[in-house]
């Protein structure tokens, strides 16, 4: 057992898989000797060398194109797009090529790759370096989407994403980089498409993702002191989406709140809410509540960014008020 930061868990997971599969390679801007701008790939270049850990120019289409071409000809790839905000620069490659090629070729071609990127708010970088774009990727048929919230999940879901035969976009949250957690020795392998109940409760289900998970847990602690027992589910994976776990929880708690960092419109919680409204309707004792970033670009100033992104206080207030 070792205590790892979320940041070092990224390289830990990739290294585990590169040792297991000598054909696995990675590429991206500054991922080599520099170890990545978030230091998430530190040590990989030293251990695996330049052939397997490739620095690239700032050419997002070239990065994802190279990843795709290699993946579909027998070389699995982990590609880094430094900030998720840069995914739009190569969204053709991701959404038109990588996602649709298996379907269009009727299974003649497979694209087993992982696209990793730093996602989310908290570092005061403004509207082009702080977005939460997981819902954009969720909307594209053919992509799988994961967003781990802890070091152990990062290692296990990274391994699962790398071994998955489909393209997976893995979001690493910038504000979780310094958080720590225990990771067992030996191989760690998790399962895509599985949510995790991180706090049991009986009165309300809070479904949260990535940075919103620790905030939901903190909110649950405060609510507990006020006599409201909240169950917190770390959704972890948007595609595949573990609706069974959420529906099962709602059957017991009869209430659902989603906590989403993405802007309001078409956030992942909207899909969850619509499914629960349909399939869990008779279990509900009240309306499904969505707590999201408002439909605005993220501002840079700390007080403004904090106002926009769901906070512990907003989660507590929203749930408390709904109790009326």
């Amino acid at each position: 057992m070792a205590e790892l930061t979320y940041r070092s868990a990224v390289a830990h997971g990739i290294a585990q898989e590169m040792r297991r599969d000598p054909s696995l390679v990675m590429l991206g801007q500054d991922v080599g000797p520099a170890g990545g701008v978030f230091k998430t790939t530190l040590g990989l270049w030293d251990e695996f060398g330049r052939d397997r850990v490739r620095d690239t120019p700032i050419s997002e289409q070239a990065i994802l194109g190279a990843a795709m071409g290699a993946a579909m000809t027998g070389v699995p790839v982990v590609a880094e797009i430094m900030f998720s905000d840069f995914l739009p620069v190569c969204f053709d490659m991701l959404s038109n090529e990588i996602a649709k090629t298996r379907y269009m070729s009727n299974g003649q071609l497979a694209v087993p790759l992982v696209v990793r990127c730093a996602n989310g708010s908290g570092v005061r970088f403004g509207a082009q370096h702080s977005q939460s774009l997981e819902n954009w990727c969720m909307m594209v048929p053919g992509l799988k989407v994961v967003a781990p919230s802890t070091p152990i999940d990062m290692v296990g879901l990274m391994a699962a994403a790398i071994r998955d035969p489909d393209p997976v976009v893995l979001f690493e949250h910038k504000s979780l980089m310094a958080t720590k957690g225990d990771v067992p020795d030996g191989e760690v392998l998790d399962t895509l498409g599985t949510a995790r109940t991180v706090r049991p409760g009986t009165d309300v289900t809070i479904a949260a993702l990535a940075l919103m998970v620790p905030r939901a847990l903190e909110a649950a602690e405060i609510l507990a002191q006020e006599g409201i027992s909240a169950e917190v589910i770390d959704v972890r994976s948007l595609v595949p989406l573990d609706m069974a776990s959420i529906l099962e929880s709602v059957r017991r708690t009869s209430r659902l709140v989603t906590v989403e960092e993405n802007p309001r419109l078409c956030g992942w919680g909207a899909e969850v809410a619509s499914i629960v409204a349909h399939e869990g309707f008779w279990d509900l004792d009240g309306p499904v509540l969505r707590i999201t970033t408002p439909h605005v670009p993220l501002p840079a100033a700390d007080v403004l960014e904090d106002e926009a992104v769901p906070s512990v206080d907003r989660i507590v207030d929203t749930i408390r008020t709904s109790w009326g």
């Binding site: 289409q61 070239a62 994802l64 194109g65 190279a66 990843a67 795709m68 071409g69 290699a70 993946a71 579909m72 000809t73 790839v77 053709d92 490659m93 038109n96 090529e97």
Partner: peptide
């Protein structure tokens, strides 16, 4: 779009 993929 396929020129970068050819590189891969």
């Amino acid at each position: 779009s396929h020129l970068p993929i050819a590189n891969g």
